[in-house]
Design a protein around this nucleic acid. Structure first.
Length: 266
DNA sequence: CAGAATTACTTTCCGTTTAG
DNA sequence: CTAAACGGAAAGTAATTCTG
């Protein structure tokens, strides 16, 4: 939405309520001039705080929609997740005795969400909730949601007619491989291993012969073929180190012997 | 004249620098 | 890398001017 259009919306909703600019300003705790500027589309001189305040007074929710070259950034950010999803799904296809469903959304007892992959072993009626993460951020929150999904999984599988009764429900947290994620996991090793005792190696034998309920944390790269291929750069999630090109001064200092082709910045 | 737009001035914020 | 200090820029408001 353009600035002018948004301004027009504000004006329209204000007038519909028969409010003066001053009335809207009072409710939003801003001055009348801010309302005037916004209605005329002059948002450059109004802070986001004030914009939200005025919008909220009219029951408008303001979402920031970032676009890049006409593309949707949300989709781009989701690309890493998709890549991980695809890599894991490819691997599951080759597992004997397992069936799986991707993106299982649920809404039970007021709890809603999506299980990235719900897998079940037909012979042993073991259920496996697979959660995919491109980066590790909030451990408590993450383990909390994982546990919620674990509790609901059996009911969800039964409802969908996949497994009448699950003998056990396990969880497998797959994290996109990155040094940052590994470091964070190491920092919380005690907590994580208590909840997710198996590692990437141990889960393999468990998958071959699923036994009692368990939990696993493993790191995965999208180049992963089930063996130890090196991490792919494809899904590196955040924070690459930006290397600033050396200034002329720095380029001239004989730090490296190969100063032969010092490129001139265009 | 009421309500909207603009102006003039004060306050707050934010980026930069410096120090630890 | 974080925190504190500082100065300039931007935001916010009250006062004023404009307009239908």
């Amino acid at each position: 939405m353009t600035d002018q259009r948004f301004g027009a919306v504000i004006r329209f909703l204000r007038i519909r309520r028969r409010w003066r600019q001053q009335d809207l300003a009072d409710r939003a705790r801003v001055s009348q001039s801010v309302v005037s500027r916004m209605e005329r589309g002059h948002f450059g001189s109004v802070s986001l705080d004030k914009i939200r305040a005025v919008a909220a007074a009219l029951d408008i929710r303001v979402d920031i929609n970032a676009r890049w070259r006409a593309g949707d950034l949300d989709r781009m950010l989701a690309a890493g997740h998709s890549a991980l999803h695809e890599a894991v799904a490819r691997r599951l296809l080759h597992l004997d005795g397992w069936e799986f469903a991707p993106e299982v959304s649920f809404s039970k007892f007021g709890e809603r969400g999506v299980i990235d992959i719900l897998a079940w072993h037909v012979a042993s009626t073991s259920l496996l909730v697979i959660e995919l993460k491109t980066e590790l951020v909030d451990f408590n929150e993450m383990l909390g949601t994982l546990d919620r999904k674990r509790r609901l999984a059996a009911e969800i599988a039964r409802e969908r007619g996949w497994l009448e009764r699950a003998a056990s429900v396990s969880v497998w947290l797959i994290v996109a491989d990155s040094s940052t994620s590994r470091r964070r996991a190491a920092d919380h090793a005690t907590m994580l291993r208590a909840a997710l005792p198996l590692d990437g190696r141990a889960i393999r034998s468990w998958l071959a012969r699923p036994g009692s309920a368990t939990g696993c944390l493993s790191f995965w790269s999208t180049g992963h073929a089930g063996t130890g291929t090196p991490p792919s750069a494809l899904i590196r999630s955040t924070r690459h180190r930006i290397r600033v090109p050396p200034t002329r001064e720095q380029a001239r200092t004989p730090a490296r012997p190969s100063a032969s082709e010092a490129p001139e910045a265009p």
